[in-house]
Design a protein around this nucleic acid. Sequence first.
DNA 1: AATACCTATGTAGCGATCTACTTGACAAGA
DNA 2: TCTTGTCAAGTAGATCGCTACATAGGTATT
Lengths: 106, 106
Amino acid sequence: MAETGKLSHTAALILHAIAVGYRYGFSIMESTGLPSGTVYPALRRLEAEGLIRSQWEAEAIAEKEQRPPRKYYKTTAAARPVLEASRSRYPLLAALTAPAEEKERV
Amino acid sequence: MAETGKLSHTAALILHAIAVGYRYGFSIMESTGLPSGTVYPALRRLEAEGLIRSQWEAEAIAEKEQRPPRKYYKTTAAARPVLEASRSRYPLLAALTAPAEEKERV
DNA sequence: AATACCTATGTAGCGATCTACTTGACAAGA
DNA sequence: TCTTGTCAAGTAGATCGCTACATAGGTATT
């Protein structure tokens, strides 16, 4: 486990993506271009470190929209300083993930 | 169900064919070259999405012309923006379906 | 009378592709 | 070495397009 506050570039990118509004694995894959085998394990680790929290979407919603259920993530309070540190360490981070639009790519 | 406004190329082609005057399944098959197993289910879906409406031809007419009755389709108001979006997304769409002549192929 | 084709609509079932998430094996890296 | 990243494959349900077939009355041929 990396000491708190020292995120790899990939982990920082994923955390940043969540922070700007990409709230589930598949949309993070699309917005970052990272493969699923990178994103999902990384989400596990970020959650284990307490930087994000997850919640499965209600079954009724997935059923209504006729697709698999999504696991939504949001950043925790602990993520804020880590994010700031990451952004100053990796200045190009923000450029790799455009902010999510209001409705789409939630 | 695809989100409203996002049509596949095939669905857009069929909708376009109706819009330019091919008003029943068989003539759409001929004008687009698509097989019946593609056209008829697609017509169902387009109608379910509210982009087209159907009406069976009067029996008397079919009997008079000595052929099976036709099910006529026309585009709804909801179809207009979808058609415009489809035409800009698939620029070759119009070329694949020549406009129906006044009397024939109705 | 049998056969075949034409118009016209329709369905069953297969394979491909999409959305999402998951995992095992291995390479890269600190 | 221990963590991290990646590839590859898998699962599971959904949609979509297609082939092949079904139906059914009409005409034309044999």
